[in-house]
Each structure stands twice: as C-alpha cells, then as structure tokens.
Amino acid sequence: MKIIPVYALSGFLGSGKTTLLTGMLNYLKQQGKRPAVIMNEIGDVNIDRLLVDHDVPMTEMLNGCICCTIREDLGATLLNMYHQFQPDIIIIESTGIANPLELIEGITNVSLKVDIELKLVTTVVSAPHFLALTHERRKTRRLMEEQIRCADLLLLNKTDQLTDEHNQEVKNQLMQLNPHANIIETLRCDIDMDVLFTSIHREGELRGQNEQYPSIEKASEHTHHHTHNHVMTYTHRFDEAVDRQYFKKLFSEIPSEVYRAKGVIKFIEDHESYLFQYAYREIEFVKINPQQSVEPVAVFIGDHFDKIQVKRAIQELTVNI
C-alpha cells in the first residue's frame, strides 16, 4: 500500500495561504497527480472553496479551529479521505488562527492507523503585518510566533511592500524564532513548486524529537486552546447587488479591529459576482469565472470588534445605492 504524503499550510489570516494552495494544486495536476484538500475555516462559510477546481476532492471543516473545537473531527476527516479517495497527496489548509502544533499531532496520530505521512509544515508570513506587530505582545503576535516555530518551511510573503532593510529585519526575527526552518521570500506566494514538493521534507524520525526541534517543545508549554479566544467573526448575507465604490468605502468605516474580511459580492455595475479579499487595509477583487450561482456573502474577522457597527455600516451602504 502506498504512503500518502500530507502537506500542512499554516499562517495568520490574510497572509496568502489560499494563494499558495491554488498554486500547489495547479502544479500537482500538471504533474498528473490527484490531490485532495481539507480546508478549515473559523466562520460558517468557506469562501475559498470557489478557488478549488470541482474535480479536486475537498472536505470543509467550518465553525471552528482544527487545533481545538473540531480537532477530533480532523482525524475522522483524514481517515475518510484516505479510504474514500486514495489521493496521491493531501493538503490541509488550517484557519489563520490555528496553532499548527496540535495539527501536527493530529496528523501523526492518524498516521499510526493508516498509511499517511506528514511531509511538510509550511507557514506563510505576511512581511508587513509581522513587522507592524514587532513591538507588540498582543495575542495576535504570540499566535503568529507559534505558527512560525512549528514550521519546516517559512514563506516570507508580500516582501514588495517593505524596504530591503525592513525585510531583512523581519527575516532576522524569523531566524531567531525558528533557526531550523528554511526561509524563502515570495510575492503572492510564487515559489518553485519543485523545491516545495521534492527538496524540503520533514523527516519522520525527527518529528517529536525536541532536541532537533526545540521550538516545538517551547511552543508546547503554552496553552494553545486559548491563543485565539479574542478572535470573533460576523457573517453578512446580501439580498441585492451593491455599488462598487460604496463597497470599497465600507472598509474605511468598519472598526479597525476588523483585520480580515472575504466573501462574494455582486456589483450593480455589471451584475457579475466577484470574490473579494480584504487584509491589512487593502482590498482586491477577482471576477468569478465561470460565473456561478453563489450567494453574496461577506465574512468579517477581527479582535472583539463591534458587530453592530459593522452591520450598520453595511445597511448604510445599501441605503446609499
């Protein structure tokens, strides 16, 4: 029986994990491989599923974080995917607020029952966001550090948004947090997939040896189940199309504690559906092709923000049309 390799993707909200995932899937399909995906989302809607081709087996784990509230379901999901699809490779994209240490343990536990093997833990780090949190000790910063400590490969993403000096500053901090990980600077997570899939592999006999990965031992001393209790979500479903400019303006009026939003929106200008991504005060739109019958919805994620304020700002957006 073949051993199915498992690749885990970690990284804080908006760092670029889904962009990396789509790149990995395109590469694998070009190589004639049959990948399967497990996507974990903290909210009750998985927007990113629209970016995965329908012929790729995918399981959604919603309304929770792999590392705690639905952790037990991960084992069952992996086992089901193994028996039902027998893919060549399994990729797990965890929610941005997950600590990958428990994810690693969960995959390892399943590997004792069936022929799967954790090959690589990749953490995507948004260079400008990490730098912005350099001198803060908030829970967000601590969570990002734990994601970095557990990685075999670190992708320092969005480096075009910083000077060379600041990028080097971030890189030095990453090396201090995890001296054992490979670090690759990227733009939009554009990486040589041959490197990711063939050159860098986590050695099974090393997994769990704290003398080899002292950062994991340090991470295990924390109380992981409480590292993201400060994170909350609000899901809003739209009954009608909205004005594009008013929608952009919305993000200057919502609470600053909202640091991530994504969803599907339909604009009155062309009545076509767009996938939108908002992170770190920047927003981008991608037209959904081919157009699908998708419910317009937006998911807002942040630190203890005022949901009523967000809802009111959206209502005013609709009134202004």
Rank of each mutant, 00 (worst) to 15 (best):
H222S: 02
E145L: 03
L143Q: 01
S15G: 07
N80K: 15
H201G: 11
A261R: 04
V310W: 00
L101T: 04
R281M: 05
T198A: 11
H222P: 02
T18M: 05
V264E: 01
G14D: 05
D190A: 14
R188H: 10
G106K: 13
D192H: 06
I254D: 11
L174Q: 08
V114Q: 01
K307N: 03
D160F: 12
Y82W: 10
K33I: 04
Q277L: 07
A313W: 00
C189F: 14
Y82P: 10
L79Q: 14
H226I: 08
H83A: 13
N178R: 07
L196Y: 10
N172T: 11
I91L: 06
K311Y: 00
P5Y: 14
D55S: 09
Q245D: 14
L101W: 11
V114H: 11
D44R: 00
Q291G: 09
D192E: 01
T163M: 15
V56Q: 12
P290R: 00
E136L: 09
D160T: 10
Y278K: 01
E272H: 13
E146N: 02
L155I: 15
I301D: 02
R237N: 04
T223M: 13
L155M: 13
N157Q: 10
Q30C: 01
L250P: 11
L21R: 00
A76N: 08
N63A: 05
I89H: 08
T223L: 12
I301H: 03
R260S: 07
A132M: 07
I66S: 01
T95M: 04
A219H: 01
Y280N: 07
G106W: 12
E316Y: 01
E269S: 10
L131M: 04
T77I: 12
L25D: 03
I47S: 01
R141W: 05
Q161C: 15
L51R: 03
A8E: 09
Q86H: 14
R237D: 00
D73I: 15
D306L: 07
L131R: 08
H304F: 15
H271P: 08
L20E: 02
L153E: 08
T69I: 09
I183D: 06
D243V: 00
E102M: 06
E93S: 04
D48N: 00
Y7A: 08
I254G: 05
F305E: 01
I38F: 06
N63S: 09
R237S: 08
C68A: 04
L112D: 07
V242T: 01
H201M: 12
T140S: 14
I184C: 14
I308D: 01
